[in-house]
Design a protein around this nucleic acid. Structure first.
Lengths: 133, 133
DNA sequence: AAAATGATGTCATAAAATATAACATTTGGG
DNA sequence: CCCAAATGTTATATTTTATGACATCATTTT
């Protein structure tokens, strides 16, 4: 559903609406922007316009702050997240899926000591491979 | 997905945004409201606030006008639509589905002249019943 | 403890967006 | 040609937002 994503990223909400949806003050919202946590677009009249994704992120920021993180911490969280997404993109470009990558990591494990793959409980909940031992 | 509906009906868009999304002028949007085709809510400051459903309806209105309908015609269309929805609700309350209702109508037909159900071409495209005559 | 810093509040000022109402224009049908 | 429907235009008042400065409060740092 590509259309949904598009709509979630359309900047159509004025700051007043965002204040209500997030229960944040304009001061807070602008401050988080100043700290590069969000980047609302500006309309022709220089008013900030927000997307639903922006609203989600602001709600996230609120949660992180409630959890005791400070702005710097939140910034780090998003930096890591971006790195992760970049890696995923790179692999996708190479035609690899997440599960492909998992297999590769497993193979690397195998070659370390000539061992079998670890097959975590998560990947193989019922340990079926054990019947082949 | 009940949440989706809720979000589509949240009045969060100022008229400026709606203008861009629909390519209508403020004058037109307010005029259609005056004609009871839409009913945006007002915020504390008396500004009209629109939902995504409102935007959809405005786009519909645009299409109808392009098709040569006038405001009165469009009003009729929406009146009929409401009537239909009301009927559906009533039947749903009685625990009847659409196909139940169709059966009931067929039965009524039968009793008119002690005849078999009509089985319209739509319901029986190949007229299979004819082989039983 | 004092000072510094981070996060937010508050206030003043300017600009942009919207509401309302009145009058003007356009367009299609009788 | 005239009328009415749909829309444009303009003026005025109010609301909303942007920006920047200064204030406050809590937490760290020194």
């Amino acid at each position: 559903m590509r259309e949904k994503e598009l709509r979630r990223s359309m900047s159509v909400l004025p700051i007043g609406t965002v204040m209500k949806l997030t229960d944040l003050t304009a001061r807070q919202i602008r401050y988080y922007e100043q700290q590069d946590l969000i980047k609302p677009v500006r309309n022709e009249g220089n008013r900030r316009m927000y997307s639903l994704n922006d609203v989600d992120r602001l709600l996230e920021i609120k949660d992180y702050l409630d959890d005791g993180l400070n702005i710097s911490g939140i910034k780090e969280v998003y930096k890591k997240q971006e790195q992760l997404e970049d890696e995923r993109k790179k692999n996708l470009q190479k035609g690899l899926t997440d599960s492909d990558v998992r297999k590769i990591l497993q193979d690397e494990f195998m070659n370390i000591g000539g061992l079998k793959p670890p097959s975590s409980t998560f990947d193989n909940p019922n340990n079926f491979h054990k019947f082949n031992e």
